[in-house]
Design a protein around this nucleic acid. Structure first.
Lengths: 148, 148
DNA sequence: TTTGAAAACACTTCGAC
DNA sequence: GTCGAAGTGTTTTCAAA
């Protein structure tokens, strides 16, 4: 499905998704049209979901980040959790997890006051029985998805 | 620093970082050169860190994801933690955090066996006193960085 | 099937306004 | 900020490995 050449192309795109097909081709020893065809195929196959910009959160006013663990009532469906949590622009990611906690939510806020408000609103969701927040002190590593 | 027009441009780039300046311009009512100048400025200012591809982890063989909390020995510097954790290609993100836990590490592995190996290696790091892993059941929300 | 070369088309980029 | 021209990149076509 994705041979070593595809993987090499993805590595280049992971570092710079706006690289030209010719630039990518130079790094993987392929012509621009050959690269484009492979990229088009991976896009169609769903291996490539899209391209996005990497921003400096601090420069945009996001100063505070936290992991908020939600303990949910017994029979809350993932769909319900998702629908609720998706509404929050402050929610960067959310996953159902094993263990005591039911839902792990990553929140980005302007400051502590803002974070507090978001956590309060999350805690007030009907299916949430209690929350536990862990504030991020500093982000040491942040990598785009890589190959296995 | 970033006016509403810049924010609009970033929103377009967040959805499709390979959009042409002309396409972006159409969505924000600006000419292509005007968009380019703003993008160049945000790039120079560090607001835009770069562009990356969004991949389907499962399609690439990453089937398992987990939050691994590391409890570290009293006086371990963030630099030490970072240097150690950065070595692992399986580590997607790592942050120092408040609370009992010292380091929150997000790991992506091929399968449970692979995850287990990674956790064991992390636990064997000299400064790690104990670990606690939470496996992701399903990713409900995953958003690129957005505006405050 | 997949590739590379060439041509037509679109975008980027820069100077002038 | 826009406009227009010159340089690049993209995309299609086609022939070959």
């Amino acid at each position: 499905m994705t041979d070593p050449l595809d993987a090499a192309i993805l590595r280049v795109l992971a570092v710079d998704a706006r690289a030209t097909f010719a630039q990518i081709g130079q790094q993987v020893s392929l012509s621009a049209p050959a690269v484009k065809r492979r990229v088009d195929r991976m896009r169609a196959d769903g291996v490539i979901r899209g391209y996005t910009v990497r921003l400096d959160p601090a420069a945009l006013g996001w100063q505070t980040e936290a992991f908020v663990e939600l303990y949910c009532q017994g029979s809350t469906s993932p769909a319900t959790m998702r629908a609720a949590v998706e509404q929050y622009p402050e929610v960067v990611a959310a996953s159902t997890v094993t263990g005591d906690v039911d839902l792990m939510v990553q929140v980005r806020a302007r400051d502590m006051r803002h974070l507090e408000q978001v956590v309060e609103r999350l805690a007030a969701e009907p299916f949430v029985s209690r929350t536990r927040s862990t504030v991020v002190l500093s982000a040491l590593v942040r990598r785009p998805d890589v190959m296995p």
